[in-house]
Write a protein that binds this DNA or RNA. Structure first.
Lengths: 202, 202
DNA sequence: CACCGACTATGACAGCGGTCATAGTAGCCG
DNA sequence: CGGCTACTATGACCGCTGTCATAGTCGGTG
């Protein structure tokens, strides 16, 4: 008789971090209550202060960290799945994860790292750093993959940042419009331009 | 003996909308209180319910709308200032507004429209629509300018969305990192690719 | 002067948030 | 059995928020 859609395995602690990330990406950090997280995870309220003595800040930071590792893991899986890896192919997969979600599950959720940045960048330094670390953890494998695909090393990092920036922005717009238009536009326009960076080696 | 940095001219009502936008872009919607807005605007608390009988939701929606019109106005001014308008030149100006702010005033503020989207997209339909309208008001003049610069009409809209997506995402990353690196990376990498779209008319 | 609308000024209220304190349970070790 | 640790379970507290209600001020108008 669990409360909500979180897999029961993997100890209550991990479930709470997962639930926190899920609620944060839907409602933002400030609007997500501790009691709500516990309920969503089907965990007892008392466990909150047991597992997260640092309070909400600690829970949020761990949720953001989890999101960063999750994103990095997805990049690795996309690369493994691509037969002939190209920059545009990787980018298309990254975007497709979001269009798929929005089409099948609705526009309820955004990126938890973006939410943490918006809500905490100025008010909670530790969370801001967690968000920066999450972006870094996400950007790094993308940049490395670009280098391996033949993109000049000095441009790989910047192009990876461009890819993630575009994706984040398109997620925002898509959620505001409740339409995947922005996501498809970004894939279509940026994809080819990314592949062009492979050849141009001066 | 005003409370904070808001110009005294332009009636208290407009000042409150302006202050709301300013506070929202710093702390997010949920963390911005009505009393705080009034104090920041140097306006009496009682004026809130007088000018905004719709409560916080109305105030937030107007702040978002104001931000959208402001962004659109900036685009128009950038275009007027550019001697030889090019897509990369426009984009560079749009980004430079943010790098300038971050360098001179610190990383306290993000984009209020992004903040409203993150905090209200799922919880407050009217605000979500206001955010969508703001993005549209911002994208439209950019797209129109691209067309006038020689970008094929069927690509202008998508490229404008790409520009704004990249900018929004880079703002997020820059704020998380407290470093304009993401903004400069995005300008340098996307700029040339935008100009390439002018010639290709196949 | 009375009157009236626009605006200002406070005080109260109900709700909810995170956090603390305290007590209870379960299981293992010796 | 006692004792200890890990975890659960509640209840209370305080601060804050948005909103409402009520009263006050000010500036014109007739």
């Amino acid at each position: 008789m669990k409360a909500a859609g979180v897999p029961a395995e993997r100890g209550p602690r991990e479930r709470m971090v997962f639930s926190a990330a899920q609620l944060i990406r839907r409602d933002g950090v400030a609007a997500t209550g501790m009691r709500e997280v516990a309920a969503h995870a089907g965990a007892p309220r008392g466990s909150l202060q047991h597992y997260f003595p640092g309070g909400k800040e600690q829970l949020v930071n761990e949720a953001v960290g989890w999101a960063g590792r999750y994103a990095a893991g997805r990049v690795a899986r996309f690369l493994a799945a691509l037969a002939e890896p190209t920059p545009s192919g990787l980018f298309a997969e990254m975007v497709r994860q979001w269009t798929d979600e929005y089409r099948t599950a609705g526009f309820a959720g955004g990126c938890p790292v973006a939410a943490a940045t918006v809500d905490c960048a100025e008010s909670t330094p530790a969370t801001r750093e967690a968000a920066a670390a999450a972006f870094a953890a996400w950007t790094e494998p993308v940049g490395r993959a670009l280098t391996e695909m033949g993109v000049p090393e000095e441009r790989s990092g910047a192009l990876a940042t461009l890819m993630i920036s575009s994706l984040e922005g398109a997620i925002l717009i898509a959620r505001a419009e409740r339409d995947v238009r922005a996501l498809t536009a970004v894939t279509r326009e940026l994809g080819p331009l990314l592949d062009a960076a492979v050849r141009n080696e001066a």
